[in-house]
Nucleic acid binder design. Structure first.
Lengths: 324, 324
DNA sequence: ACATTTAAATCAAAAAAAACTATGCAAGTA
DNA sequence: TACTTGCATAGTTTTTTTTGATTTAAATGT
């Protein structure tokens, strides 16, 4: 025989008042409900919890006194669990786990997380990086509540809300023959050697761009990291196509890169938040999304704008780097 | 909306197995039971606990992962409460509260408690002293589980099990005119001054003895403590009637007392254990009663026997005190 | 590509638990 | 002695839980 929290609640109230009737009043139930609950509990525990006094209530036995203490504690714990659940789903406190696609993560997330933590200091953010397939997989399994990624290869079970649009652009070494162009087409580029970011989803995306222009890319080098692609481009191994803003035009070895806009109708990449469809987000996640939107708007006004069109980028580069 | 321990149990099992079906199997309930319990819990907490996967179970959300941890803890606490109750009503460990009548308490209890604690070192005994009225009162209110007292003035709600019988005897100063008698009757004593232990129940008992012999006592002094009665008797203020064995024949000031048996049909006092009728005793109390019975048997073979008949007492006194 | 399997949600019906009203009973109170 | 108090019990009704059957939708196998 098992006891329930309700049994304990009834018992504790009766014990506190030394009265079944008063417990019933206070709990807004009938007197027999309390009475039978106590009987049940005595049966379940094998303890005699009360001494009954005719016409004047009841009083706890020594065993009952010992048992009521622990019972109160358990009820408190149960209430706390309820409150905890409530906190999890209403208060902006606790922890948030997100995954993000690696290209823009180091550009976007550090400042975003900083801003978020300033507003909600009680939140602990864990942000991991994964490729699209793993992002989707771990979202589905519940390892993360949210993902920041591109709207590519998403299954129908994943809901996507776009935030920023990134058109592709060309990245060249400063001394590349085409480095002085104000804009370029994929057709013009095709004959030059290209450095490819050889990641599952990115690879297919770049190929699709060339396909849409009916040309074929001349892949000279493949690299497995963005830093390596930048390094190869800056050192003249070829051009490359990027979507995420360049922001900083130096490769890790200090050599310079130039960004040039592309002509032609090319599908841009849309960065946004992905989550499981019809998934009820915690308020932490909701808050994170709105902070992200604010931050995206800010960035669109500053660094990202310069990047999106070559003019802006070159202006900012000329003013920031070449002039002084 | 409230959740129950059962809901938590179902949820935790499902979470542990990432499967409603397997949880149902393990808990020997149907699959819909688990399913609805989880739904209910999600409703009650406002949390999305699981991500559902068609045809391959479900997985905990980050919030669900946080919630399941605390849920497991609460379930453990609940189980522990059950075990605790079980311990209280089966294991000889914990605490025992008893009351005892003051006349024999300092003679009987110290050695009895020592013996009991040696066998059951995990028990903590609290033994208080009270007069009969308070003993009964506090038993009824559940302040104590057991009482050690005499079978006098007990209401029907109190169940009494006799353990030892104490006939009354006379206590005299060593130099009292009657000190050499081998036995005495109340009629012989009546003319001498008597020292009365002036306690509620004791008083009535001693009077009833005289009443049964159709004589009246000559109360010269009244005292409110046994030690004082012994002192007065030893210093020649009068004789007194005792029931509890003398054991040690010295008053607190070192003067000596002599014990002499009484003739005539005199109601003895029966010492025993009292508890509320139909009250389910804890195993600690049960164990205590059997230890008490053993100890009573031992004492009846030694000190108490010498006391009950004057011959034995004087022998032991002569051999122990006068000879060396 | 289609059938089969897997596993959760849903539905309606049955069973169990809990609640209520009314009543009984024993002791205290007027 | 009649009246009140307060817990226990009985019988009913309501609510909750459980269940078997069915549905749904994705994964798996041929």
């Amino acid at each position: 025989m098992h006891f329930t929290l309700k049994h304990l609640r009834y018992f504790v109230k009766a014990g506190e008042h030394s009265s079944v009737t008063r417990a019933a009043e206070e709990l807004h139930v009938s007197q027999p409900s309390i009475s039978t609950a106590i009987l049940h509990l005595e049966e379940a525990t094998g303890l005699q919890l009360f001494v009954r006094h005719h016409a004047q209530g009841l009083s706890l036995t020594p065993a009952g006194r010992q048992f009521i203490l622990k019972s109160k504690q358990l009820l408190l714990d149960a209430d706390n669990l309820g409150h905890y659940a409530n906190t999890l789903c209403t208060k902006i406190a606790g922890s948030l786990r997100i995954v993000s696609f690696p290209t823009f993560t180091p550009i976007l997330l550090p400042s975003l997380m900083k801003k978020f933590i300033e507003t909600y200091p009680e939140v602990n953010i864990q942000c991991d990086e994964s490729h699209q397939k793993d992002i989707i997989q771990s979202l589905m399994v519940g390892d993360y509540e949210l993902a920041l990624t591109y709207d590519l290869q998403l299954p129908t079970e994943i809901e996507f809300e776009p935030i920023i649009e990134f058109p592709p652009y060309v990245a060249l070494a400063k001394d590349h023959p085409l480095a002085a162009s104000t804009e370029l087409s994929l057709t013009e580029l095709a004959e030059y050697p290209m450095v490819l970011l050889d990641w599952p989803m990115s690879r297919e995306y770049f190929f699709s761009l060339f396909l849409s222009q009916d040309v074929e890319a001349n892949i000279a080098y493949r690299a497995q990291s963005l830093a390596m692609v930048r390094g190869l481009v800056a050192n003249g191994f070829g051009y490359s196509l990027f979507n995420t803003p360049l922001v900083n035009n130096l490769a890790l070895d200090g050599s310079e890169i130039v960004a040039i806009p592309l002509t032609g109708k090319l599908r841009p990449l849309r960065l946004g938040v992905a989550k499981i469809a019809h998934f009820r987000l915690t308020p932490i996640a909701e808050a994170f999304i709105s902070t992200l939107k604010e931050r995206a708007a800010e960035l669109a006004q500053s660094v990202f704008t310069d990047q999106r069109f070559y003019k802006h980028l070159s202006q900012s580069e000329e003013s920031t780097k070449d002039n002084p």
